[in-house]
Structure formats: structure tokens, C-alpha cells
Design a protein around this nucleic acid. Sequence first.
DNA 1: GTGCAAGATGACAGCGCTGTCATATCTGCC
DNA 2: GGCAGATATGACAGCGCTGTCATCTTGCAC
Lengths: 337, 337
Amino acid sequence: MRVRLEDVARATGVSPKTVSRVLNEEASVKESTRQRVLAAMESMNYRPSPAARGLAGSRSFLVALLYNNNDNPASTYLAEVQDGVLDACDAHRYSMMACPLRTRGQDFIRRVDALVSDHQIDGVIVTPPLTDYAPLLQRLQEHGVPHASISPVQHKGAIGVCMDEQHAAKALVDHLVELGHRRIAHIVGIANHGASRWRLAGYKEALAAAGIEFDPSYVAQGEFTFGSGVIAARQLFELPQPPTAIFASNDDMAAGVMWAANERGLKLPRDLSVCGFDDTPLATQLWPSLTTVRQPSREMGKLAALQLMERLRGRGPGLLVQVPYALQLRESTAAAP
Amino acid sequence: MRVRLEDVARATGVSPKTVSRVLNEEASVKESTRQRVLAAMESMNYRPSPAARGLAGSRSFLVALLYNNNDNPASTYLAEVQDGVLDACDAHRYSMMACPLRTRGQDFIRRVDALVSDHQIDGVIVTPPLTDYAPLLQRLQEHGVPHASISPVQHKGAIGVCMDEQHAAKALVDHLVELGHRRIAHIVGIANHGASRWRLAGYKEALAAAGIEFDPSYVAQGEFTFGSGVIAARQLFELPQPPTAIFASNDDMAAGVMWAANERGLKLPRDLSVCGFDDTPLATQLWPSLTTVRQPSREMGKLAALQLMERLRGRGPGLLVQVPYALQLRESTAAAP
DNA sequence: GTGCAAGATGACAGCGCTGTCATATCTGCC
DNA sequence: GGCAGATATGACAGCGCTGTCATCTTGCAC
């Protein structure tokens, strides 16, 4: 019925163990044997049973993608990351399980335990803001399960992928400065997210570089959602000297700013320049289209998974790779009024 | 190290096989024995090994979520469906694997085969437009793998979940008619999607009910994307008698219509009413906010998964359940000019 | 009581692999 | 040519469960 390792062994005239060695890319197999075995595997369309491998050995060839399910980052972001991870898994014959985690309560500990001990997960990919959630990372360490991080705050010792968000944010604000803006406001995201910190830091850096004094009243608190963008913008509009440009920490909030601007009768981008961050599909669906920073989420998912598997296969410790960002200058930013 | 079935058996004073029976909810176990075993499992925190179960038995307790990866429906939609499915799986101790499928070429056959024979998937959940992709369904049948469908065109014999989209679309157009619109245009989605057909049918039904003659020139072709909405709208605006209302087959295209309207200097909703379908987050992020139909995607994912598991556990054949829709009347629709 | 079907439980092999350890084969070098 | 030390391969048990079939209890009719 099913082609087994033993069948391949018989066809090649070697022992099952040798076929197993080839399958697992172990070193001590003569090249000629290896080729014969591989050929047989191919021609017989042999596909190893993950269940048997998991049961007999110590590896499951399973990785888990962990994401936060209450403080949800945009689902488009996660979907892209997930697709990237699946891509990488496919290429290396790993399988992926998606695992939403609620960090409230102790639920998540049980879930992580269940994952690791039930399925003997080989490794984990952690997405923000879980990336820096200490109890989770600690638990993973206790289980001895390696993890790759996407955009971790703490770079030291981390493997995975990151982007120079601070630099990107600075470039974006530089652009506003070049357009002649001086009263530039910023809407920060949820406080303990790395993204919020980096983008704020980039904003400050750009101001400093342009010789504009930092004014805390131009910084409004948001929480990465459309609605919070609306509220923050309304606040900024009430200032005695309202900003001529607003840099929102992500696209959703930027959309909220645009909504609030429309509500107030401001004409974009003539009366107000707006920019966001992430380059979600939303950015090109707004009117005017949104100036933002492209974050290659899919690519990042893929790279993180690759680093994890590099590590799992013992081909090295795995790295924290950096991906380039790309400014997307569109119609929502224009010369200061 | 790990608590095994055998340990539970020893603690309870029964044979491993009996514990296995309890685990699998088989009938012929005396109630008192069952309780003792369950208590022992609980107190010892026993967690069965999926690998061993899969290897020894015929079930893997794994379901796959299949989705299309080239003709992608909105990722927010998929993300919601996936979360719903995960919810249901969690509740019934099943695990889920996400499987993007490219329907181009023969790749997908290999992928499906791999899934089914590698992981011995117990069942599959199919999302549109895969729901009616004949080669896929046939292959699943050949493998003897049951599947649940989300919004299948072919209701007969299907299990899963659906919504009365035609009725919803009719209700939406009824609303436009009540606002006094007579020149109502429709932008259809990708041709062979059930969603496109139903929504078009509802549009026609509403026109007929209002005594408005159907005019094919008021129907433009789109493909569910923002860009196609822009193009279709531009086309409609060029008509000698441009429409006063446009019903786009989904929210993304409706956003495109709004973009095109802005581009043309039309003031919404004064000069043009626009409505969409799906109630994606986008709908409330546009300005003016979009009148649309809420589709409870998350709930639908959950229900489909529940029906599938019902079937897998042999508790019945599984049903095709229908979920209610909800009109979301917002600011993008107003009285006809 | 006895006999017999149905109900409840157990013994045992084996699912398809890998870990461990033993064995065979090949190097190079004196 | 022979021997140490690598290099390459194989034998075998066992991972944690479930399927099959056998066995042991029951309950119940006669």
C-alpha cells in the first residue's frame, strides 16, 4: 500500500538504516550509495511518514508559528508572514502549524506546553508583539525549543529577521522636512511594541537632524488601530498650532488621520500631509494614496523560518538577518502649506 | 519522562487497551471504569502522542485548511476563517495545518497527495474559490478524505457552512431603491466564484422586484481587487446616463469605486452612493464609511470545522448550516441626487 | 441451575521509522 | 603485508499507541 523505507532499502540492496541515513542527510554514507538510494526513493515516490519519524526519533519536522490573538496586529501582516513561513517550510520539507495565543491569563502556558509536548515541535517562529514577551520566551527555553523571531526588540542572541525601522522612520520624516514641513506630529503605537519605539526614535532623530525642537505635545498616543488614529488626530487638530504633517506609526492609524482630516474639512494633501508605516494594501486603497514604508512581511516570514531551520538542521547557530525597507512616496504627502 | 498510556493503565489497574478505548470514546467500556480512567488521565496530566496515534491507528486528528494562493481572496477574510477553524479544532483536540494551494499547473495534485498520504489528514476544510474546484474535490474523494466547504456553490451533498448571499445582495439593492435610486450599477467579481453569481443574481432580483429594467451596460466586470474596482467605475462614469449608485461585489472594489469617484470630483454620498459586500475592516476605514453586508467569516470557519469533526467522529453525516447575514448601513449611501 | 449471547476487558503484534552498538570495509603507513 | 584508525554499513530493539482476536464476565431466558 504505502512505500516504506524498508521497500526502498530492499530495492537498493542496502539496509533500512542506510536509507534512513540518506534521508536524514547524515555524513557517513558513501556518495555512490547515497545516489543509488536517492534514485530509488525518487523512482518509487517514497515519502517518509512524519508520524513514524516523530515517534521513533527526536524530531517532528514541525514548526509552529505563534501569534498574538488578542492584541492582534493587522491580519494582512500575519497572513503575509504566514505565507512566507509556509514557503520556507515547503522548501525544506517541514510542516507548519499556526498557533494563535492569548497572552491574557495563564492559558498561554498550557497552550505552549501542549504544543511542545504533544507535537514535539522542533522549533517556533514568534511574531511581534510576542517576540519580546518574556514569559513565553522563558517557557520555550525551559522546553529547550529553539525559536526565530520576527522584528525582536532585543537583538542580542536572537535569530530571525529584522528591519531597520528607526532608520526607515527617520527617512520618512526627512522626506516631510524636505517638503518644507516644520510642525510635524507623530502618533505612536502600543507602548511596549518594538515598532512603536523604533518609529518614535526615528521621528525624533529626523527632527534633531533638521534642527527642529522636539515638542511632546506633537506626539499623540495611539494603539495601531484605525479608531485610535482618528482620536489622536482630532487631538492634534485642536492644538493652538496644529501640525501640517502627521506621521502615524502604522497605516491603519494613518487612515484614521485621513478620516479625521476629512471630517474637519481639510483637503489632503494640500492642508495636511499624512504618512504611515507598513505599506499594507490599505495604503493604495485610500484617497489620496498613502506615503508609507514598505515592510516585506512575506519575505521576513520566509527568512525567519529559514534561519530557524538552519539552526534545527545543525548547520549553524542561525543569524539575525536584516532586510531593507523601501520608502513608498505617494500622494498623501506634499509641500507644506 | 513522558506520561504514557501504559502509565495511566497501571495507575488505574486496567490494561492499556482499555485506556485506549476510553481515550477514543469507544462504546464498550463500563461507565465506572471509564470514570476511573478519566480521573487518572486528568490527575497524571496525560497527553496522548499524536505521532503514536497516527502511526498505530488510522486517524491523525489533523485537519487541513486549504486556500487558494494565487487568486487570493482578501487575506483578512482568510485570517478570520482560519481563526474560527482553529477555535473549533482546539475545542475538539484536533490540530490544523494551513495549506496554501496554487491551482495553476499540476502542482496542487502533488500537494494534496503529499498532505493526505504524508500526514494522513483526517479531513479538509475548503475555502472559496477552491470550494468548487472540481479537480481538487475529485482528488479528495479518491483519497477518501471527507471535506467541509465554506460557501460552496453546489449545495447538494456538501457539508459545511453557507450564507444566503443572493438574499443579502437583494436586500442591499432594495435599500438603494428605497433611497430613490433607479440607475443602479453593479460590478461583478471573478466570473466562476459563487460569490459573484449570487451577488449578481440578488442585484437582478431586486431590480425586477422594483420594476426596474435590467440594463447590461450597468454591469461592469471586476475581479475583486481594488484596482479592478477603479477601472470598472471609470467605465461606468463614461456612460451617457451614469449610475447614481454602484453596488460592488466586494468591499475592495467598492473602495476602488470611491477612489475613482474622488478622482472625478464626485462628492460622496451626495453625487453617488456606493456599497460593497463582506464588511472587511476597510469598510469602516474609508471615508465616508461603507454600506455593506457583514459576513461572519470567523463564525463560518468555526461552523465548517465543527461539521467536519462531527462527521469525522462518526456522529452523523454533517450538515450544511446557514448563517445569517447583516446589513451594515453606513455613510456611503444616501438619497439619490 | 444451565446455556448462550452480549458486554467488558486483555494479550499481543506491529505501524514505519531511528538510536545504539556491533561489524565490515577501506585507508595509509611502517 | 599487516595493523591501527577511520569510514561505511547492518542488526536489533523499541518509540507509544491501536487493530485483531481471544478471553472472561455478565444478564437473562428456559
